[in-house]
Design a protein around this nucleic acid. Structure first.
Lengths: 118, 118
DNA sequence: AGCTTTCGGTCTACATTTGAGACTATCGTT
DNA sequence: AACGATAGTCTCAAATGTAGACCGAAAGCT
């Protein structure tokens, strides 16, 4: 039993593993990285990521909002405008996230070589 | 288009996004964290994580091995013994990963509170 | 002697998640 | 008058994940 599992197995509502499970899905990191530069609208995020379906973008944004990483602001206009922006929590998350991205950047050549040799 | 997407969309074999996609799955971080303390056998890892299926453990270990994060050593014994250990690359990955874990630890109460309020 | 457990997986059948694309209503442009 | 943009939701099909049976040989227990 490690730090990631010790609470999850007792169905605690909020173990570390729970947190990592959210950010460790297919799209969350990508969305947060996209929002790290500036506030964006729904379709703008979709166009940046380029291969995310509307459904998954919608779900991912909703969960990130629930968890307090981002805010969702609706403007009463037609056509509708909805803007997504990082919260303080979201911005503080960028620090460890960018360390990860940098590691990936520095090591991806090595990893690809490893895959090729396999 | 951001740093994570710019190469993936051109089907480059090894963009940063490719790397993060692997580690950003359901189980990879958990397995790496489990192996961070010591070398373990297949079923030992399964018991530590506790709620991973054998199939996913098998697949996850195979991909981590392909990508060069871990080594797989088979001992010609009966019953069989197969040991998994971190490589240098795997160990270097622990640095940014543990920063993430610490962030999750420090912020999970806030996140849970945010979920509750939603 | 015979039964159970263990090892590291693979296989199959079922459940859950994801993706592609249609659909919504309103307004500005052509 | 038709078209596209807006932010989503809905439905159906495809992909992915889970649970549990199964494998063969050996060691431990009764």
């Amino acid at each position: 039993m490690n730090i990631l599992t010790q609470q999850a197995q007792f169905d605690h509502p909020c173990p570390i593993r729970n947190v990592l499970h959210r950010i460790g899905d297919q799209w969350s990191l990508l969305v947060l990285e996209t929002l790290s530069r500036k506030t964006l609208r729904f379709n703008e995020i979709g166009r940046e990521i380029n291969d995310i379906s509307k459904q998954m973008l919608s779900r991912t944004l909703k969960r990130l909002e629930q968890d307090g990483f981002i805010t969702r602001t609706v403007f009463a206009e037609v056509p509708p405008r909805v803007e997504y922006a990082l919260t303080d929590v979201g911005r503080s998350f960028l620090v460890p996230m960018q360390a990860l991205v940098q590691w990936a950047d520095a090591n991806h050549a090595t990893i690809c070589e490893s895959r090729r040799q396999y």
